[in-house]
Amino acid sequence: MNDMPMVRFENVSKRYGPLTVLDNLNLDIGRGEKVSIIGPSGSGKTTVLRMLMTLEAINDGVLWVDGEPMTHMMQNGKLVPATIKHIRRIRAKIGMVFQSFNLFPHMTAMGNCIEAPITVLGMKRSEAEERAAELLDMVGLSAKKDHYPSQLSGGQQQRVAIARALAMRPKIMLFDEVTSALDPELVGEVLQVIRKIGREHDLTMLMVTHQMGFAKEFSDRVCFFYQGKICEQGAPAEIFGNPKNERTRQFLNAVLEAG
C-alpha cells in the first residue's frame, strides 16, 4: 500500500453545467511531497483543492487518498460511489486553509482550535487545549489565544486557521491562496509559519499560490494549470528557470512584470 502516492487524481473531471472546469485530470502527489499549483485566474486551481477537500463533488474519475479511494469505495471488487461515512473516514486525513480564513467568529482563537478535536475526534477538553496551546505557540500566537477573530489582524487570523487545521492531525494540508486576502506587510508572517510546518511536520502539502518566490524556494514540484489542464509540471528550477511551454512562459512573464 505504501507504494501508492498520498493523493491520486485518476481521470478526474469537473463540470459546472456546460462549462468543463477540469478536464480528465491525472495527478499523483507523493508522501511528504510539497506541490505548488500556479496558473491564471479561472484555470481550475481552487477547484482541485476543493474536490480533494470534498467541498465539490467530481463528475468523472476517482480520487485516491493514502492508498484508498475517497470518492468511491470497494464493494464486491467494484468501485461504487462512497457513503458519507466512508468520505468522513478518509477526509479525516486532510486539512485545509482558506483564502478568506473562515474562522468561527463566535469562538476565540483557542475555541476555534479545540472545537473539532473535541466534537469530531472526541478528545478530552484538557488534552485538546494542551495541544491547541502548543500549536498556537508554534504559529506565534500564545498571547492571543483568548482573542476573538474580530480582534485579530488578517495575518493573525490566518495563522490561527493554520493551527486549527493542524489540530486535527491531518496527513495532507491544502492551502488555497492563503496570503491573497492579506495586506502586503502581513504576507511574510504567514509564509514563515508555512515554512516552519513544512520543516517540522511530516506533511504532504498542496498549495495554490501567487507567491512565485515562495513556490520556487519551498516546493518540490510546481504544476502550471491552464484552462482546466496541467500544462506543464516539474521541479521549481525547471519551471521557473527554463519553462518549456509557451503559455507557462507568458504567464510567468506577466506575473513577474507585475511584481
Binding site: M53, T54, L55, R88, R91, N102, F104, A116, A161, M168
Partner: peptide, 12 residues
C-alpha cells in the same frame, strides 16, 4: 465559508 471550514474540520 463557515460551512466549508466545518467540512474541512470533518464535522458531521
Amino acid at each position: 465559508g463557515q460551512w466549508e471550514a466545518s467540512i474541512a474540520l470533518n464535522m458531521s
